[in-house]
Computed example of a mutant assay.
Amino acid sequence: MQALGNPIRHFWLVQDMAQAAGVDLAAARRENRLTVEDWAAMVTRCRGCQWTAGCQHWLDAQPTDEPAAAPPACANRAVFDTLRDRA
């Protein structure tokens, strides 16, 4: 079993991936489309993800002005897709 990654680092990776995917997590929370527990679960999934280095490389390569679907390897891709579709 793999140890979970640093919670602060993964909090920011989730934030950055959401932004790259065109999802505003704070707005989703305010609009009750995302619970605090959902948000915490996203960070925990990210902390356990084996693709962290790939994630950072993918994020670094993304244009800042064009949202893109999160990559298939992202542990939170389905959540980002759902939140973006419900916006």
Rank of each mutant, 00 (worst) to 15 (best):
R29W: 06
H10A: 07
G22N: 10
T52V: 11
W51I: 12
A70V: 06
L25C: 02
Q15D: 09
V43Y: 08
P67S: 08
T52Q: 15
W58C: 04
A61S: 14
M1F: 06
D60K: 05
E37A: 10
I8E: 12
H10N: 03
Q50G: 09
N76G: 14
D60S: 14
W39S: 15
A20M: 06
E66I: 13
W39A: 11
M17R: 01
Q19P: 13
R30T: 13
W51A: 12
L59Y: 07
R45A: 14
L4E: 09
A78H: 10
R30P: 05
R45W: 04
A69N: 09
R33H: 11
A68D: 10
P72Y: 08
C46S: 12
C74P: 08
A53E: 06
D81E: 14
M1G: 12
A40W: 04
A20R: 02
L13S: 00
A28N: 08
A70S: 12
D38S: 04
Q62K: 04
D85I: 08
A87E: 14
P7C: 00
E66D: 12
V36T: 11
R45I: 08
E66Y: 13
C49I: 02
R30N: 15
V14Y: 00
A20F: 03
V79D: 09
R29T: 03
A21G: 03
A61P: 03
F11K: 09
M42L: 10
C55D: 00
P63F: 02
V23F: 00
A26H: 11
A18P: 06
A40T: 13
R86M: 13
A87Y: 15
A53T: 15
L34E: 01
R30C: 06
A18S: 09
W12G: 00
A3T: 08
A21E: 02
A40N: 05
D60C: 03
D60N: 15
V43M: 01
A26L: 15
H10E: 12
A26N: 05
A75E: 07
L13F: 00
T35E: 02
V23W: 00
M17N: 03
T82G: 11
R47P: 03
A78L: 14
V79L: 07
T35F: 04
V43K: 00
L25Q: 02
T44D: 09
C46T: 00
G5S: 12
C49R: 08
C55L: 04
C49Y: 03
N6W: 00
L25K: 07
D16A: 15
W12S: 03
A21N: 01
N76M: 07
Q19A: 08
A20P: 05
L83A: 10
A69R: 10
E31F: 04
A3G: 09
C55E: 00
P7H: 01
A53V: 12
A41I: 02
A70H: 03
Q56F: 02
Q56H: 09
V36I: 14
T64L: 12
V79P: 12
Q2R: 10
E66H: 08
D38F: 06
F80P: 13
L25W: 01
M1Y: 13
F80C: 07
W58H: 09
M1H: 13
A26G: 06
W12V: 10
L83C: 02
T44I: 14
W58T: 05
A75V: 15
E37H: 11
M17D: 10
A21W: 06
G5A: 14
D24A: 06
D65S: 14
L13C: 10
L83W: 02
N6A: 03
G54T: 08
V36M: 13
I8G: 07
T52F: 05
A27E: 14
